[in-house]
Computed example of a mutant assay.
Amino acid sequence: MDLHERLLVQVSVRDVYDAATLAGHPGSGLVFTGQAGHDAVRMVRRAGYEGPLLADRRRYAGSARVRGTARLSADWIADQVEAGATAPLTDSGYIGEGDHEALHTILEQSLQWDDAIAVLPVHARWVSGDLGTLLRTVADYGSPVALVVEDGPPYPPIPLPLLSAGVAALGAMAYGASWGAIGVREVLRHLYPEPHEARGGWRRGGARSAFVVERLEFVPVERLREGTCGCSTCHGRPLRHLAEAEELHVNTHNTKALHGLHNRLLRATHRERWWQSLTEAAANTTAPPKGEPRPHPS
């Protein structure tokens, strides 16, 4: 069991009882998010889940996030290994714009553990303006990494695995990343700059947004309009039915629809060309009616 060409579903620890439903299809896996992530890994492993499992402590997010120069925790690594994680993720802090010291500190420390994946939570400028430096530095250290990109301007696909991502994780895989993880809800698809104004996340009674394949976007369920979905959750029904559905139902639709795209990616002869055509088609979809804002991609 490894992470090669897997599209993982990133969830919170409170999703532990729904984990098999959300990531039970071939080619999937799970990333549990939070300080108790390793406990969730242990629970689903004991329940018989055989897919890849990771635990992202996410010390890099929120108003109390730590800088990437902070010491990585050997106990956190050991807890993941004991719990049955596929590979341990470092509990990295945040790498700000131009913070080369933080980048080098995380990569240097991660080398002390075999098979550990260095989590690199970076300011958007690292991928929009300094990607060459980032890629060279990662290559120089030679350790496996997972990138978390803070919200910012659009950026081209990156050939590195993405955590806490939206559909960009699939784009990264099309351009050479070995795996990726897409958050099951909005707060797990973003690394918000601090301070920030919260834009949703979980709410009682339903999911925040539903994935629309034709747009390559997660759209707030109240704004779903025309179109149907043929995934095994929706069975050809209009997408609008998701506005009244329970959160688990919508999230299951999301993972099934993304699984379908993932399968298409794996079958594509020229993956980069396939992704370019897909994104061009999405950009040319019908614009929202006049006066209605375009849904924020996530």
Score class of each variant (00 low, 15 high):
1 M>W: 08
1 M>F: 13
3 L>I: 09
4 H>W: 12
15 D>Q: 10
15 D>S: 10
18 D>T: 11
18 D>P: 01
20 A>E: 13
20 A>S: 13
20 A>F: 03
21 T>Q: 12
23 A>L: 03
24 G>Y: 03
26 P>Y: 05
26 P>F: 05
29 G>P: 02
31 V>D: 02
34 G>A: 05
36 A>T: 12
41 V>C: 09
47 A>V: 03
48 G>F: 07
48 G>A: 06
48 G>S: 04
52 P>R: 05
53 L>G: 05
53 L>I: 12
53 L>C: 13
55 A>M: 07
59 R>K: 11
61 A>E: 11
62 G>S: 10
74 A>S: 14
75 D>K: 12
77 I>D: 07
79 D>Y: 09
80 Q>L: 08
85 A>R: 03
86 T>W: 05
88 P>W: 10
97 E>S: 14
100 H>N: 08
103 L>P: 07
105 T>E: 12
105 T>Y: 01
108 E>V: 08
108 E>C: 10
108 E>W: 10
109 Q>L: 06
111 L>A: 14
112 Q>R: 14
114 D>C: 09
115 D>V: 06
115 D>R: 14
117 I>D: 01
119 V>E: 04
123 H>L: 01
124 A>R: 11
127 V>C: 00
128 S>W: 01
129 G>W: 04
130 D>K: 11
131 L>S: 11
132 G>S: 15
134 L>P: 09
134 L>V: 08
137 T>I: 11
139 A>H: 13
140 D>T: 11
141 Y>S: 08
142 G>H: 10
143 S>C: 15
144 P>Y: 02
146 A>R: 00
153 P>H: 04
156 P>Y: 01
157 P>N: 06
158 I>Y: 01
164 S>N: 11
168 A>E: 15
172 A>I: 00
172 A>F: 00
173 M>K: 02
175 Y>I: 00
177 A>M: 00
177 A>F: 03
178 S>I: 05
182 I>F: 00
183 G>R: 00
183 G>Q: 01
183 G>A: 00
185 R>V: 08
188 L>S: 02
188 L>P: 01
189 R>N: 02
192 Y>C: 06
197 E>R: 14
197 E>T: 15
199 R>H: 10
201 G>K: 05
202 W>H: 14
205 G>I: 03
206 G>C: 04
207 A>R: 08
213 V>T: 14
217 E>N: 12
219 V>T: 10
220 P>H: 01
221 V>K: 02
222 E>N: 08
224 L>S: 05
227 G>R: 06
234 C>Q: 06
234 C>S: 02
236 G>A: 03
237 R>L: 10
241 H>M: 14
242 L>I: 06
242 L>H: 06
242 L>F: 13
246 E>S: 15
247 E>Y: 08
253 H>Y: 09
254 N>L: 05
256 K>C: 12
259 H>E: 12
262 H>R: 03
263 N>W: 11
264 R>Y: 04
265 L>S: 04
276 Q>A: 15
278 L>P: 05
282 A>S: 12
285 T>M: 12
289 P>L: 12
293 P>Q: 13
296 H>W: 12
296 H>V: 13
296 H>E: 14
297 P>S: 01
